[in-house]
Design a binder for these strands. Structure first.
Lengths: 189, 189
DNA sequence: GAATCGACCAAAAAACGAATATAGTCGAGA
DNA sequence: TCTCGACTATATTCGTTTTTTGGTCGATTC
């Protein structure tokens, strides 16, 4: 399966640079040093190639996020690790970012599936951390599923397509403040 | 100034329906029962018309939000009133929604200004409520500006262009849960 | 003088048809 | 089995023409 991996690697680079729509199968073939028609021996379609590239990046994202979480001890630090690692990875893995965010890709069924799966995975990850926190007596939460949902929603605000310029150190402070609010709330203790 | 108000009203309807870009000055003139050239006696440009329409809606939004907040007694209820009223109004006032969100309008300087002004107003509104809460001994907050910023960020998650379908009762529950987290946090008290 | 609008203009947008590019197929050859 | 040149239907791009649009100007009316 060396040829197939070679194609995936070439495609990953080109898709990252030019996006799914602007990258041609011919370009992928050339970068993989083969004829275009040969690509179809290994993949059913251009979409199939992209799906496998996105899956590869999803596995990288999952792996790094899991590692970062496992490196921490408190549920608070685990949540922070989840948020920070995820943001860092998404800014590097251009293809999965596209798959999740690019509105021009919305109408592809496989993109819809990838987005639903990603959302589910985020919820499950946060749920697991929250459950541990509750089991350890650190967190007090009555509806873990809904709380996970709310947290993911709040985090989406960090990804919001801000239409005004915000300095990046403000975003970091913002993350820390969001975490502070998440853990302690604003009502006097 | 009756003629000018008539133009604004006609324009508001047409802009709401077709958007700024797709509405022509000729259509506005016809709806206002005058010749196109007469519009330019009252307004400098098409952009000028839109600016005034957006300003009119901003005042409606501001007014309703302020009323809703003043109707409440506790800082918690005031924050909720702010969030709920704002979401309701934005879903009705199509022109200010466009001005704030539509990426095809981004390059107009007056849109940029409107967005910055709106953001500032949101921050100031939340800050005022938080300050009252602190003064009343209900909230305990060390950086009110940053906290306001974080809250607005989290609320942006509710406006996130979700690329997967979410039932609307889930969104309501999500608001309540977000408020619960905002007030009480998740760390055991 | 203020308000109105038909005629006009430059530039932008839309429409159109021809040319080119693209994803995918097929069959011959190694 | 793997490779790829030749091929096809369709999509995209391109250049040109036509139409539309925002805005201006000057004559007319009140």
């Amino acid at each position: 399966m060396e040829k197939k991996e070679n194609i995936i690697e070439s495609a990953q680079k080109l898709f990252s640079r030019f996006g799914f729509l602007k990258t041609t199968v011919d370009e992928i073939a050339k970068a993989a040093r083969m004829g275009k028609a040969s690509i179809y021996h290994y993949f059913k379609s251009k979409e199939d190639i992209f799906r496998e590239v996105v899956e590869k990046e999803r596995q990288i994202l999952s792996g790094k996020t899991r590692e970062a979480i496992e490196r921490e001890n408190t549920p608070q630090d685990k949540i922070k690790a989840f948020i920070v690692t995820r943001m860092e990875c998404l800014s590097e893995l251009a293809n999965i970012y596209d798959a999740l965010k690019n509105e021009y890709l919305e109408h592809y069924a496989f993109i819809e599936k990838a987005r639903a799966a990603n959302f589910r995975e985020e919820i499950e990850t946060v749920k697991a951390i929250l459950q541990d926190g509750v089991n350890d007596g650190v967190f007090e939460i009555y509806d873990i599923e809904l709380t996970s949902f709310a947290i993911i929603t709040a985090l989406k605000g960090l990804e919001y397509p801000w239409t005004i310029e915000i300095p990046s150190h403000e975003i970091e402070k913002n993350i820390d403040k969001l975490l502070d609010i998440l853990f302690n709330g604003i009502v006097k203790r």
